[in-house]
Design a protein around this nucleic acid. Structure first.
Length: 258
DNA sequence: GCTCATGTTCCCCT
DNA sequence: CAGGGGAACATGAG
């Protein structure tokens, strides 16, 4: 699930359920604790009050009333759930306990992670280098960053240090909307195609954000990732390929290689 | 049984 | 050095 729109949903959940509240305890197993352990996580977070959480790309950053910052990444199957029962779900990796309920960090495949930072300045050490957030990115900066790229369109858009937040589904939907082949070298894009690419990315994100998930129900292409699926625009059979290491669906007619 | 899955990282090759 | 391919991580769904 988690790409930018999903994590934005998790941010809203965290803000609604945890912001301004005091932690009464923390349960965790150690499977996804990257720089701490269950004992320390509970000791350090207990009695802290969460501040306003923020999102950068697929990262959720949760400051507290101390310099301490909780950082969450959801991998491919992570999610947040609010319950009144303290009893854990089988995929719970961490439970933040409050007086009025519990916020569960779940992650079936354990590809996500939990970091506890002593202070904000340690953030990049956890996230690694991140480009600007894809949703907040301004048009001018997008064009500026594109200008320096000399690699395939999909590889660049998937690179979190180039733009933060886009994932496999979002990138396929974006390139389909923009009618750009996933292997097109970015250097070959015309000024008009660059404009179209920016608009397509914003449209895909805007359509997905209200439903807080990818794929958005309104998004036709992301619903068609299976053999024999047709292009929603021209009805030709979509093609499957591996691009930048990921399964990629595109329309060979609408998205020509050159 | 087999293949594939929304992410990231690391190693190897060009 | 930059970029791409492939494997690995762990677990479930079809």
């Amino acid at each position: 699930m988690p790409e930018l729109p999903d994590v934005e949903g998790f941010r809203q959940t965290f803000a609604r359920r945890a912001r301004g509240k005091r932690v009464t305890g923390v349960w965790s197993d150690r499977s996804e604790l990257r720089n701490t352990n269950p004992t320390r996580l509970d000791r350090e977070l207990r009695d802290r009050v969460f501040d306003e959480p923020r999102r950068h790309g697929k990262w959720l950053i949760c400051p507290t009333d101390a310099p301490l910052v909780l950082v969450l990444h959801f991998g491919m199957t992570g999610e947040l759930a609010w319950t009144s029962a303290r009893k854990g779900h089988r995929h719970d990796r961490m439970i933040l306990q409050f007086a009025d309920g519990n916020l569960h960090f779940r992650d079936m495949r354990k590809l996500g992670g939990v970091w506890l930072l002593a202070q904000e300045r340690d953030l990049e050490g956890a996230t690694g280098p991140l480009g600007p957030d894809a949703w907040r990115l301004q048009h001018a900066e997008f064009l500026e960053r594109l200008g320096t790229q000399r690699r395939g369109a999909k590889a660049a858009l998937m690179d979190q240090s180039f733009l933060a937040g886009l994932g496999n589904l979002t990138v396929d939907a974006t390139l389909w909307r923009a009618r750009i082949h996933p292997r097109r070298d970015l250097r070959s894009l015309s000024p008009r195609e660059r404009e179209t690419l920016f608009d397509a990315m914003k449209t895909v994100l805007r359509d997905s954000l209200p439903s807080r998930r990818v794929p958005a129900r309104a998004d036709l292409l992301t619903l068609s990732r299976r053999a024999g699926a047709q292009c929603p625009r021209c009805s030709r059979i979509l093609q499957r390929a591996t691009v930048a290491g990921r399964t990629t669906w595109f329309c060979p007619h609408c998205q020509p290689r050159s």
